[in-house]
Design a protein around this nucleic acid. Structure first.
Length: 266
DNA sequence: AACCCTCACAACCGCGATGAT
DNA sequence: TATCATCGCGGTTGTGAGGGT
């Protein structure tokens, strides 16, 4: 496995970025994009290595970065996501719009880890089994293998399928998903990370989704809503099937008007 | 005022993963 | 298949700000 030569050996600059460098990098990327980080600094006229440019852009200059302190909701989300994902900072960052993995890593090491430690010395948390097939009331699963957001192929699910409905009440902090037996289907839609954003960015008020059948008609999930800045809310949820299969999904919705949003009916 | 300590955060380093040839 | 170039991630370090003594 090859390794790129160290930028120091190439006579390139290290250390804090100047505002001039920021300006050059930003305007270059806005004009030409960042297809090749290694070639970028040379093309842009920066005495930096591509790695440094990439880091600066990703962690600081990117226009969609949310500056400022983390809200309580964001911190709670980080704690929960860290419980789910461990030190997979980029995965955590992907679920917190506008926040970078570096930022989250920093806030974890400087605030949250300590807070959590203080908290766990005074309380003994209880955990629910991730294998439970009914009335799953815990927010997140314990086992790391649940966290890979498995993407079932059509052949994975061939027997029964249930539509899942969800409703959000404006005066409660939990959301309830209820599975209802519906007609059988031979297929299961492939769902990837872009699915939700694409589905929810459409003008349609309903999203056609089918999930594997729950074991009964009781609510199969109940979990808190994660909100941040009143601009977005959402949740992560998993389905534990009675055949042992598990599926995990995220749903975040940008409202943009600061009010409590209405969840589209599935 | 000077020094020390802690905290916060930007940036760097090293490694594995991945794609190209 | 092997090798190399590049990217992206997680761990770590460097440094400035602020507070306490």
């Amino acid at each position: 496995m090859g390794r790129a030569p160290c930028c120091e050996k190439m006579g390139l600059k290290k250390g804090p970025w100047t505002s001039e460098e920021d300006q050059i990098l930003t305007s270059f990327i806005q004009k030409y994009g960042h297809g090749n980080w290694r070639a970028l600094p040379k093309q842009a006229g920066l005495l930096r290595c591509g790695k440094s440019c990439r880091l600066r852009w990703v962690n600081y200059l990117r226009p969609d970065i949310k500056r400022g302190n983390f809200t309580r909701e964001e911190e709670e989300a980080i704690i929960k996501l860290h419980e789910m994902l461990g030190n997979r900072w980029s995965a955590i960052a992907a679920r917190l719009p506008g926040r970078t993995d570096n930022e989250i890593k920093n806030v974890w090491h400087t605030h949250l880890k300590k807070r959590l430690k203080d908290h766990t010395t005074t309380t003994s948390p209880t955990r629910s089994s991730s294998n439970s097939t009914s009335n799953v009331t815990s927010q997140f699963a314990d086992e790391p293998e649940n966290l890979n957001y498995p993407q079932p192929s059509s052949s994975d699910v061939s027997s029964s399928v249930t539509e899942v409905s969800a409703a959000l009440s404006t005066d409660q902090d939990t959301i309830v998903v209820k599975g209802e037996n519906m007609e059988l289907s031979e297929t299961f839609p492939d769902i990837d990370d872009s699915f939700w954003s694409e589905a929810l960015s459409t003008d349609n008020s309903s999203v056609p989704l089918q999930f594997p059948r729950a074991s009964n008609d009781e609510p199969i999930l109940e979990f808190p809503i994660i909100k941040n800045d009143s601009e977005e809310f959402g949740f992560s949820f998993g389905l534990n099937m009675d055949d042992g299969m598990e599926f995990w999904y995220d749903l975040f919705i940008r409202t943009g008007h600061g009010g409590t949003p209405e969840l589209p009916e599935f």
